[in-house]
């Protein structure tokens, strides 16, 4: 077992893990932060996307020991401490950017990473950035719309399809 310490959503945490423990497993099983979803467990679906030192990564495809000393951000750290949604989450709610909600944590974390890099993306840039996030309700249209709205752009002309 190896002791790992990291900052998760601004709080210092540590735990003893095996070499093979995935970051997703550490977050879910050791810290009970089950908002990070494990969908495919093959690094394809993106439901497990979290931020590590500011960049989006698939936490099911990164060892917990590799995140030792890192700043990790998860979906639980997105809303304010009083539970009020952040701009991206609110936009997902306003624009019906989710159906079953399973992919949503990864979608929100990818969207946050995108808007940090590119605060006013085009629709094509949003779709391109979400290539590693799969939604099996086929809800992409409203997800894209929500992210554009969260970036402060007018989405009234984007018709629901």
């Amino acid at each position: 077992m190896t002791q790992v310490s990291m900052t998760v959503n601004g709080k210092s945490v540590s735990g003893d893990v095996e070499g093979r423990t995935l970051l997703s497993g550490f977050l879910r099983d050791h810290l009970s932060l089950t908002g990070t979803h494990v969908g495919c467990d093959t690094a394809q679906c993106g439901a497990c996307v979290v931020h590590v030192n500011g960049g989006a990564v698939k936490s099911c495809n990164m060892l917990a020991v590799e995140a030792d000393g890192a700043e990790v951000g998860t979906i639980e750290g997105q809303a304010a401490t009083d539970g009020s949604l952040n701009t991206i989450q609110q936009a997902f709610q306003d624009h019906h950017g989710l159906q079953c909600g399973f992919c949503t944590p990864g979608m929100v974390m990818s969207a946050a990473a995108l808007l940090k890099e590119n605060p006013r993306p085009t629709e094509a840039e949003v779709r391109k950035y979400l290539e590693g996030n799969l939604c099996r309700c086929t809800g992409y249209h409203n997800i894209v719309k929500a992210i554009l709205a969260a970036s402060g752009q007018d989405v009234s002309s984007i018709a629901a399809e």
Binding site: A56, V57, K58, N61, M62, S110, L114, Y129, E131, G132
Partner: peptide
């Protein structure tokens, strides 16, 4: 290569 999250690792 891959997608944005893969490219970060």
């Amino acid at each position: 290569i891959g997608d944005p999250a893969v490219r970060n690792r």
